[in-house]
């Protein structure tokens, strides 16, 4: 029976995302953010969410809308503060959103560890700083490292360039960023792709995320200009 991960609508793509879930959201700045999937999650109404994303959104739509919605209890990210991150800034200043600030490389490596079945890893980043407070420190061959835990999610929302019905993906330029590692680190990986191509259209040498990591694909190709 043919494998077909392509779903017809955004609503079908985000079905089952519920209260209290942890959601990874791809993107760096405005590049590679799955804005349509985020909007679908907002419409779904799930609350008490933990969001894992590099930034906390700017402007009024996409990630910023999610941050301003009151449905996010906690965000795990490296760089929430940006010009235009007012939605997040206000919630944070009011103490309405919990922030776990993680160095960017540690954030992506924690995802990779979860994806790869690694229990924890020693990392030199942040040794001796406030961001390593309370973490185990171990000296290995004269250098200090902090113990970092894997970071998984219930759901990953990922934006890709091309997808086939198995869920093989390619990305565009720097919009790749966190997409591949998030796709690997979540139980349910949902992709919005700009193009859907036949199963044999992508050269196996060029596939960036392999179909084994992808659960659902929705085709989103619109010219919408987002306020992000």
């Amino acid at each position: 029976m043919p494998i077909d991960k392509i779903v017809p609508t955004l609503e079908a793509a985000v079905a089952g995302i519920g209260d209290g879930m942890t959601i990874m959201i791809s993107g760096f700045g405005f590049a590679g953010v799955p804005n349509d999937l985020i909007e679908a999650v907002l419409k779904l109404g799930a609350k008490d969410l933990t969001v894992i994303s590099n930034n906390a959104g700017t402007g009024t739509e996409g990630l910023a809308a999610l941050m301003g919605s009151g449905r996010v209890r906690r965000i795990i990210c490296s760089y929430p503060r940006s010009k235009g991150s007012d939605k997040f800034d206000a919630r944070y200043a009011a103490g309405e959103i919990e922030l776990e600030l993680v160095p960017q490389g540690t954030l992506s490596e924690r995802m990779r560890a979860a994806a790869a079945g690694i229990g924890a890893f020693y990392c030199p980043t942040g040794v001796g700083t406030e961001l390593a407070a309370g973490k185990e420190v171990r000296t290995i061959e004269g250098r200090d490292y902090v113990l970092e835990m894997p970071l998984r999610a219930d759901v990953a929302l990922v934006q890709a360039q091309k997808a086939d019905r198995w869920g093989n993906l390619t990305y565009s330029k720097s919009a790749r960023n966190f997409g591949p590692v998030m796709a690997m680190a979540a139980d349910l990986t949902i992709v919005q792709a700009k193009e859907i191509v036949p199963l044999d259209a992508m050269d196996p040498e060029t596939i960036m995320t392999q179909s084994i990591f992808v659960d659902r694909v929705v085709h989103v190709d619109n010219d919408r200009e987002w306020d992000i």
């Binding site: 906390a56 490296s78 760089y79 929430p80 503060r81 940006s82 991150s85 997040f88 800034d89 944070y92 200043a93 922030l99 600030l101 993680v102 160095p103 960017q104 490389g105 540690t106 030199p124 980043t125 942040g126 040794v127 700083t129 406030e130 961001l131």
Partner: peptide
């Protein structure tokens, strides 16, 4: 270069600590 401790201006570390050690 990552925080002033002022809650009105959320902290942001980005890749600075990774670069500083690497």
């Amino acid at each position: 270069n990552w925080t002033t401790g002022d809650r009105r201006f959320p902290p942001g570390v980005g890749g600075a600590m990774d670069l500083a050690v690497g």
